[in-house]
C-alpha cells in the first residue's frame, strides 16, 4: 500500500457537507507535523458550527500544532469572522498550513478572500467526497460540486480524496464503490486521485484498494455519547 504524502506547504480540504473534511484535516495536520516543525490548522468553516476540526483543538495543541478558528462574534452565535492569523500563516514560508474549508460552494467562498495569499505553485486543494452521501453519488452531481467550489474559491482543485464510508459499517466493497466514482471523475476532469481513506479501526484492514494510495485515519472528532 502506498501512503498519502503531503508534498505542498499549503493543503486545502474542500467538498460537500459531511464528506469528512474536518476529520481528514485533523489527520493531515498530525501527519504533516511528523515531518515539519511549524504546522497550523485553520478551521475555516463559517457554515457549520457543530462537529468541527476545532473540536480536536486541545489534542492538536498538545502536539504543538497551532489551531485557529473563526470568531463567532467572540461567542458562539452565528456571526462568524475570519481572523488575520490565517493570512499571516499562508504568507510565511516556514509554516505548513492545513485549511479545513466549510461545505459546498458556500463554505468555499471564504477561500476567495485568501486567493492572493496562496502561492499557486505551493498548494494542494483536495476535493473530499463520500459516495454514500446523497448528493455525491454519481459523476454528474459530484463534478457539479467541483465546478461550484472552484468558482467560489477562485482556486483549482488539484487532487481527489475518496472518503466513501458508512462509519463503523464500512466494508472493502464500499471503498471500491467510491474508487469507481473517483476514476470516473479523474477521467472527466483530469484531477488525479490522491488517496482513499480507511479508518484505523476497520477490520480487517484492507491490504490494498485498487491502484489507490491509502490514508489511514484516526477518529479525533467525537460524539458526546
Amino acid at each position: 500500500m502506498v501512503p498519502l504524502l503531503f508534498k505542498k506547504r499549503i493543503n486545502i480540504f474542500c467538498g460537500h457537507y459531511g464528506s469528512g473534511k474536518s476529520e481528514i484535516s485533523v489527520n493531515a495536520a498530525l501527519k504533516i507535523k511528523e515531518e515539519h516543525n511549524h504546522v497550523l490548522l485553520a478551521d475555516m468553516d463559517i457554515v457549520n458550527p457543530f462537529f468541527r476540526s476545532v473540536d480536536a483543538k486541545n489534542k492538536l495543541e498538545d502536539l504543538g500544532i497551532k489551531v485557529v478558528a473563526p470568531l463567532f462574534a467572540n461567542t458562539n452565535v452565528d456571526v462568524p469572522a475570519l481572523i488575520p492569523e490565517i493570512s499571516a500563516a499562508l504568507k510565511n514560508k516556514s509554516v505548513y498550513t492545513v485549511l479545513d474549508v466549510g461545505g459546498d460552494e458556500d463554505g468555499a467562498r471564504v477561500l476567495g478572500r485568501y486567493h492572493f495569499d496562496i502561492p499557486k505553485d505551493d498548494y494542494d486543494m483536495f476535493f473530499v467526497f463520500n459516495r454514500s452521501r446523497p448528493m455525491t453519488q454519481n459523476l454528474e452531481d459530484t463534478v457539479q460540486y467541483i465546478m461550484e467550489i472552484e468558482a467560489a474559491s477562485r482556486l483549482k482543485i488539484t487532487k481527489l480524496i475518496n472518503n466513501t464510508h458508512f462509519m463503523d459499517d464500512t466494508t472493502q466493497e464500499d471503498l471500491l464503490y467510491g474508487l469507481e466514482l473517483a476514476r470516473e471523475i479523474s477521467l472527466k476532469t483530469g484531477i488525479p486521485l490522491a488517496a482513499t481513506c480507511v479508518m484505523d479501526t476497520m477490520e480487517p484492514q484492507p491490504e490494498s484498494i485498487g491502484e489507490s494510495p491509502v490514508f489511514v485515519l484516526k477518529k479525533n472528532i467525537l460524539m458526546p455519547f
Binding site: 459531511g18 454514500s132 452521501r133 446523497p134 464510508h165
Partner: peptide, 9 residues
Amino acid sequence: QKLLMKGNE
C-alpha cells in the same frame, strides 16, 4: 437504499 446522512438532511 442505504446512505450516510445528517439528521437535518
